[in-house]
Amino acid sequence: MLALKNINLIRTSAYYRTDTLKSLVLNSFVSPLKSLIEKGSTEYFLKDVTLEVKPGERIAILGPNGSGKSTLCRLIASQLFASSGQMINSFDVKLFNQLEHSFYKELSGRENLKYFLQFIYPELTKTQHEGLVAFAADFSGLQIALDKQLVTYSSGMLSRLALSLILAKKHDLLILDEIHSHADLEFRKKISTRLKDIINTSNAVIIVSHFIDEITDSCERGIVLDKGKVIFDGNIQKAVAAYRLLNGGSK
């Protein structure tokens, strides 16, 4: 089970903490005293977030760009740490975010599968890794292309490779953050069946996506975020309605 209670993720920047050294130096020259005395700004990435994820749940996180969806996912995956609040997690979390952009373009599809699966599942044996590579290779349907360097791949082929890798094994808590599928219609049908299978066999799933059909099809619960705050948590249809309302009915 995963429980977040009154989670805040804040970045307090001192006045002198700028993004470039140029502005840091300029600030110190223009107003040296101010740069030392003046209080910095406080930025909320997540604000008072309270939620629970139970085994068996399929949850969609919705919200406009910059609302804190990815930040929340990364916090759940222990990549970020809350400034205040409490998080209890008994899941083994696997987070995937635009995986196709992380691949090594100079390596072949098969080599990428081998290394990535090795990093994602370090607890598995060599034989188990080989089994997963064989499954993902077969599932991707890339055949001869799988032994070619990724520089020769189209975005659709990269998407196939990424999705095959993610769907190679069931997970405890699977988080799919903006997994855009550039794959063709036929492969999308194939993944849809496998995704449902993985979602059903994984303990819990969180999906972040702007594709409403994809979400309503797979999830029964929706969480809507805005400016780092949970503004709705409940039935997926109602969550989609709340999200549309937030976007002025545009999506």
Binding site: F96, S102, I120
Partner: peptide, 9 residues
């Protein structure tokens, strides 16, 4: 960054 985020390296 992609490797750090996806593979927890």
């Amino acid at each position: 960054a992609g490797l750090i985020k996806n593979l927890k390296i």
